[in-house]
Every structure is written in structure tokens, then in C-alpha cells.
Design a protein around this nucleic acid. Structure first.
Lengths: 224, 224, 224, 224
DNA sequence: TATGAATGAGAGTTCATTCAT
DNA sequence: TATGAATGAACTCTCATTCAT
């Protein structure tokens, strides 16, 4: 009887689905609690018990969802990295692969990412620094991806506008430099001076500096 | 009797001086041990006992010279900050307050500071990040000074060459940006990729980017 | 109507029987998984989750069939004890209540029990030692039974051959001694040296020593 | 001035010596506390905090003297092993390398070791069994030494009395058997029945059984 | 000044057991 | 019956800091 089977299957998948949802929800709750505490108290000062309390679960539950404290940080970095790249990537694609798109991506970093998620900034720019070899490696991987994104954008924009880099200027280094600018400006004005309200203006200046610097590096006309 | 007195004073001051020297030597030995261990093992993983062992003193001795572990890091940051600013400042002053001096200062950062003192890089760019409110505050102070130096240099150079910043471009932000570039390039190629041999070339590219970017910001002729 | 009833009863008992069988099977599967893991990882290192996984059931199922972890070990000891006594008892009875039967029983211990069930050896001779008062008590009970068996055999053999123990030699102690010999030889060559292939020879030497020792204790002719 | 120097040296060595003594004393105090608790509560049930409390030191002090809990057990086993072998070895040597010495050694095991140190019995015969690979290995090493001692004694006695083992009887196995007898009799009457008062009598029976068994194995006259 | 043994709070982690589904 | 997520007490172990000598 297919009806029965289907019903059974549906019942099963419904309950399984709900359970799956519950799991995902709990996972996110714990992760959110960890993010908040890592950002406010610092990675080392935030104890697993505090995190469990904040997430309103038991310590054991935290360990059910995450291998250990380090894993909590690493998963957090992954999620934040994904969000960051989405925000910037979306802004870039929206305006086409040209210098305007590049600028908009920069503005999105400051205005959409940093301003809205200061705690996520704290995690990737402060709390994940120098914590352990494992975390450091993960951080490098995240930055590598971002640098790669910037590099790819740079390349596409150049191609699109028929431009080349002057001399033997390495575009990779430019990508690293751009990341450095973003990172430090965010750190300075979000984590230190805590002036998110000035960030739009500041971010625009930073982006202007970057695009100005980049313009400088492009050959006038045809690539050789 | 001046002779006697002098002799006494001299004897006294000699022994006092020697004692002073011994103290200073011990202090530096401990600090050097801490630097090495913080850089190689990480601030948290390096225990006070390890540091004492490496410095060939007792744990108690470390606490005689330093208030606590945090103090060890803070003193280290101060010394490194002083050295860093000396190196850059010296290079800048040597070539006069012009754009060449500015470039030379940048080269000095990479070639004299980062390449020669990778462990000091590790301390100020990695191990002092997100450790505690106190340390963070100290780190901010250090960066503020450096940013201030850059800002001052920028101002002097502009004045000297009779230039002004375009529009309402904030020179403070430029200074922050420059620090960000230096910081990330050092982190990327000294702490992550461990390629000090490429640093001269990379550093020159970075400096070229910076000066190119700056040129862009100056008004053509007279300031209004 | 007996037919109907019988049919009903039969159907019922059939399904009940099958259920019973299923239960018994599960019980044995879990017990077997526990045996394997206790023997290989050690009682404390083997977690209930591991056992459940190995038995391909849920943790809850393990707790349905067994009160707790200790119970798992206790049931295991009971089953192993039963098997051990069966093997030895069967060998003894097979050859009649004489010294040959006694020897054969000893050979059976080494060649049929230890050689074939090294994991069961590990449980009763190693993993059940010093675990908890409850387990220890169970272990004592098991050893008491075995010692009792040996004592009974000893008595029967003596009676059968019209012999008595010399002086005031306590046959109980002889039984304890024999158990000790069996236990340590098994431990040494199965659990430590892992040489089951030498066990036949070694076992025969051990049994020879025992029977030699026993012979010594019997009075020449009539008991007084 | 030798006087001064000597004084200085003496003062130094005195204080160093006293410190050394203190250390040794503390070490022994902690070990004694661990022995008592392992024997009464069981290795796993005895927590490091309990041990520290019983020794009237802090938990940290226990970890200053011992690497970890396992180390505590291992050191305990070493000390007990040394004592056990001393007691038995002394008894054997005292009566010369003959069968009487052999018997006396056996009596010493029961009457001097087991009866006086039931807790040490508990450690080596119960609490060190199946605890961890490391501990098990240590236990094997201890038993190997004891078995080696028995074997050596057996060999010396045989040589001394111009006797040989019958057939291809392996003396190593005899040594293992003897250890098994000692172990189980001790376990049975000290750890289970807790009848140390019967131990003299029981031990003598056990030793008589052993020597009877051994006699059986010796060739009549000359070795071939 | 210098030592290094001692402290003890606190951390991360495990896991036997329970219970709503 | 069966599941497996959740619990939380208890554990071992670390290490910055202190202080009698």
C-alpha cells in the first residue's frame, strides 16, 4: 500500500526533518553565544561553561555539537568568512566587473559587514589571532581566500578595461595590501575607537585611496 | 677630604653601577627569553617556568623583575615599539623630510626591522593581539604613536613640498592605512609565508603603492 | 475448539517466540560487543557509546538490556563463568572421576577455553579485577564456584581411589592453589606473551606439576 | 680561608640536604596516601584531590612530585616491588641456596610481606591489574623480575643439590606457576577473606605443595 | 636579591545515565 | 521497544603567583 508507506515515510521524514532543524538551531544558538562571548570577553577568558550558560544548554551539549573550544572558534571563523565573502562578492557582482564594482565591494565591507557585525569583526580580526597553530592556519586559509577574491576582481577589472599592471608589479601584493587596509581600518575604528557612525566616511576615504593607488599601477593603453 | 670622599663615592658608585648593570642584564636576558618563547610557542603556551628556564633564572627572579606575565609582554611591546620607531625615524630623518625620506622609512621597516627581527614582528603583530584589555590598550597606544609618526611625516613632507590634501581627505586615515599595509605585508610574508628573502622586493612594491596612492591625494599647486 | 485455540496460541507463541529470540539475539550482540571492547580497550576506556556503536544499536538500547555498565561486565562474567565451568566439567566427567579426568579437565582449560577464547580470559582474569566492590564480589563468587568444582573433583577422585590427604592438609587450599596456577599461566601466556600456540605444551607442564603435587599429598593406603 | 669556605659549603650542603630530606619525605607522604586510598577506594575511585587531602598537601604539590595519576601508581608498584623482592631475597639468602631457603622465602612472602602489608598486596595484586597499557607493562616487568628471581633460586638449588629437571620440563613455567600460587593465595586470604591470622598456616601448606611438586620434577641422581 | 616548592582556583573535557519522542 | 540528544557532576591537570628560606 503506497499510501501507508508514503505516510510512514512522510512521518519519518517530517520528524527527522524537524529533528534536523532543531539540531541546526541549537548549533547556531551555541555558535552565536560563543561569538558574543569571544568578542566581549576574549577567547581565553570565555569559559565553556559561560558559553553553555549563554546558549542555555549544558556544557555537554556544547561538546556534542563541537569537538572542543578551538573547534567552536574555527567553525565561527568559517561562518564569518563565508558571510564576509558573500557580502563583498555580491556587491562586486552587482555592479559589474569594473572599477565601480570594486569600489562598491569596498564600501560594502565597511558599511554592510563591519558596521552591522562588529562582533564578527572582533572574531576574525582580533580573537582568532595567535591563538593556536590550528586556528592560525585556519585564519591564513580565510585570508588567502579573501586575498584570492581581491586578486580575481583586480584581474577581471583590468582585463575588462584593457589595462595591465605597470612594470613587474605583482598583483598578489596589491591584493594583500588591500586586505591590510581593510583589516586595520576596521580594527582601528570598530574595535578600538568604536566609531561605527564614522565608518561610512572613513571607508570611502580608504576605498578612494585604494582605487587611486591602483589607477597608478595600470599602464596607459595596451598591454605588452 | 675630597679624595677620600671621591674614592668612597667612586667605590660605591662602581659597585652600585656594576649592580645596576647586572640588573639591567638580567632584565634583558629574561625579556629576550620571553620574546623568543612568546614568538615560538605563543603567549599563552609559554609558561613562566619555561621563560625562567630559558633565561637561566628562577621563577621568583622573573617576578622580581616583572610584575606578572602580562607585564612581561607589555615591557616587550614597549621595547619593540621603541626600536621600531627608531629604525623608521632614523631612516626618515636621514633623507630629509621629503617623499624620498618617506620611501626610505618604508624600506627600512621591511628590510631593517622585519627582516632582522621576525620574533619582534611576531610579538607586536600577533602575540599581543587580543590578549587582555590591558595589553590591547598598550597595543593601541603603540599603534597610535606609529600612526602619529606617519601622520607627522606626511604633514612635514606636504608642507615642505607645498602640497595639500585633496578635498576633505583626512590625513589621519591615510596614516592608519599605511600602518595597515605595513602590518599585513609583514604578517603575510614574515609570519605566514616565512619568506624574508622576498621581503625587499615585496616591501618596495608596497612602498611604491603607498607613495603612488599619496601622490594622488595631493592638490596640484597651492593649498587653499 | 482446540484447533482455533491451538492455532491462536501457536500464532501468538510463534510471534512471542520470535520476539523472544530477537531480544536474546540483541542481548547477545551487545554482550559480544562489550566483551570485545572491554578486552581490547579495557573496561574503563570502552565507553557505552562505543559499545552501542559496535553492537549497531543505540545507547538507549544498551540500557534497555542492561542496568548499567557494571551490569554489562557482571553478565559477561556470568556467561564466561558458565562456559568455563562447562568446558572443564565436561572434560572431567567424560573421563570419569579419576586422576585422568582431572588432568583432562586441566588440558581442556588451556586448550579449549584459553586458546579459543582469549577475550573471555581477558575479561575474567584482567578486566574484572579491582573494578568496583560489586564486580569484585561477583568475581569472588565465580572463583568460589570454580574452586568448589576443583575441590569436589579432588574429593571424588580421592574417594574413588581410596586415598586421603596427608596430615591435616586442607584440600580447600589445594583447590585455591590450582586455580592460581591456571589463572597465572593463562595470564602470562595469553594476555602478556600472547603465545596461544605454546599453550598446549605449557598447559601440559602445568597440569603435570599439579598432579605431581597432588600425588605427594595422598596417603599411601587407607584413610584413618 | 678554608674555614670560611668550608663553613659556607657546609651551610650550603646542610640546607640543601635538609631540603632534599624534606622533598623525599613529602614524596613518601604522598605515596603513602595514594597507597592507602588506592587500596581502600580503588584506583579509579580515589581522586587526586582525595590523595592530596590525605597527604595534607595541595593538588598542585602532588603534580609537582608525580607526573600524573598513573605515575603515582607506577612509582608505588616500583617501591612495593622492591620491598617484596627484598623480603623474599633476604629470606632466601639467609638460609643458603637450598630447598630450606626456598621454603623460608615462601614463608616470608606470606608472613612478612602479605601479613604486614595488606595494602601493598592490594596494589600489586588488584589495583594495578588492567588499568592502562602503561601500568600493565610495568606490572609485567615486576612479575618478570619476580619470576626471574624464583627461576634463579630454583636453578641455584638444583645445582647445589646436583639435581636436574625431569624430561623437558621447563623451569620457567615452574617459576610462573609458583608466582601464580603465591598471588592467588594472597588474593584469596588477604584481599577476599581477609584472614591474615590464618595466613601462616595457609602459607605453609602452599609452600609444602610447591616443594612437593618441585621434588617430583627432579631427576634422581646425576644430570645427563 | 634569589630560589623553587607550594598553592589552589579554574580550565577543558569526558561519559554514564536519562528521557522525551 | 528503540532512539540519540541532552545532562551535569566529576575528573585530571595546568600554571600564574606567592613566600619562607
Amino acid at each position: 500500500m503506497p499510501g501507508k508507506n508514503t505516510a510512514a515515510v512522510e512521518t519519518l521524514s517530517k520528524s527527522a526533518l524537524r529533528r534536523q532543524k532543531e539540531r541546526e538551531k541549537r548549533y547556531q544558538t551555541i555558535l552565536a553565544a560563543a561569538e558574543k562571548l569571544f568578542a566581549s570577553e576574549g577567547y581565553h577568558m570565555a569559559s565553556m561553561e559561560q558559553i553553555a550558560d549563554a546558549a542555555e544548554v549544558s556544557v555537554g551539549a556544547v561538546y556534542f555539537y563541537f569537538k572542543n573550544k578551538e573547534d567552536l572558534l574555527v567553525q565561527l571563523m568559517d561562518e564569518i568568512g563565508y558571510l564576509l565573502r558573500s557580502i563583498i562578492g555580491t556587491a562586486f557582482k552587482k555592479h559589474g566587473p569594473n572599477i565601480t564594482g570594486f569600489k562598491k565591494a569596498g564600501h560594502a565591507f565597511f558599511e554592510d559587514f563591519c558596521a552591522n557585525y562588529p562582533e564578527k569583526c572582533a572574531i576574525i580580526f582580533r580573537e582568532s589571532v595567535g591563538k593556536s597553530p590550528e586556528v592560525e592556519q585556519h585564519r591564513k586559509a580565510l585570508f588567502d581566500k579573501c586575498t584570492g577574491d581581491v586578486l580575481a576582481a583586480l584581474t577581471v577589472v583590468a582585463e575588462n578595461q584593457g589595462l595591465c599592471f605597470k612594470g613587474n608589479f605583482s598583483p598578489e601584493i596589491i591584493a594583500v595590501i588591500i586586505m591590510g587596509i581593510y583589516e586595520r581600518v576596521a580594527y582601528e575604528y570598530i574595535l578600538w575607537q568604536e566609531k561605527p557612525e564614522d565608518l561610512t566616511h572613513i571607508g570611502r576615504d580608504a576605498v578612494a585611496f585604494i582605487t587611486g593607488g591602483i589607477d597608478n599601477l595600470f599602464e596607459g593603453a595596451s598591454c605588452t
